[in-house]
Design a protein around this nucleic acid. Structure first.
Lengths: 120, 120
DNA sequence: ACCGTACTACGATGGCTATCGTACGAGTCG
DNA sequence: CGACTCGTACGATAGCCATCGTAGTACGGT
């Protein structure tokens, strides 16, 4: 089989209806996770975990990605040895129209204001 | 003095520029505080702390109001024995245009969806 | 088969925080 | 003044959480 059995490593995601606003806000209230989400939003495509060069260890990075996934903010899929991450724009927009864009805009404005390079 | 010396009890608020998005999101990630903010947004006017009938003790209520104030979400002023609370709409809208409305809309939608009575 | 890479799991740790209870200060009304 | 209401301060407690290190698993290439 050329199509590797990626099916054995499925990650649990909350269904759209399971996503809670408080959990999303909590997930985004951490600077590291907010940064991840901003990066994900910039590249419309999925990104591997190792793409991010965060100032924390890999263990902590894994932790942050899990929090984001369990809050319903991102979708994670294994592709070979890499784990690809993508924003759950569709679900978030359906549940909370305009919220994600407002949050990303707010984060961008603050980054620009504080000189925290990395804004679009 | 008929004009009571309300000046001796001034509460520290962050300046507009001091408000951090992460702190706002963290403040709003608590169900109790999100509920307070929704109530404040509904009545355009200021509300006293005792207006809210939260399922926690008074000490905890005080704590939540302080978190909201220190995050820059609300403004608190003493008026006699009561402490009036109001949303810092102007500052938040200036820093993060559209964010507060998106958050309130999201909270309202979730409340309606989950049957958590209390939405507008 | 072997190794390297990518990510995870588990345990530990220190810090934050939501909650409470009690005791107190500030203000109003009789 | 005295009593009552509103809110605060302080201490305690229990739970969560961001972080780390180490050891381990899964996959792909050689």
């Amino acid at each position: 089989m050329t199509t590797t059995a990626t099916g054995s490593r499925v990650l649990p995601h909350p269904a759209r209806e399971e996503i809670r606003l408080e959990a999303v806000l909590h997930a985004l209230s951490d600077p590291m996770r907010l940064r991840i989400v901003r990066d994900l939003a910039r590249d419309e495509d999925e990104l591997s975990c190792s793409y991010f060069d965060l100032p924390v260890t890999k263990s902590t990075t894994t932790h942050h990605f899990r929090v984001l996934r369990e809050a319903g903010v991102i979708r994670q899929v294994y592709r070979g040895t890499a784990k690809m991450n993508g924003l759950r724009r569709d679900d978030l927009d359906a549940l909370f129209p305009g919220l994600l864009d407002a949050l990303l805009d707010a984060a961008g404005r603050q980054a620009a204001r504080l000189g925290t390079a990395g804004d679009a």
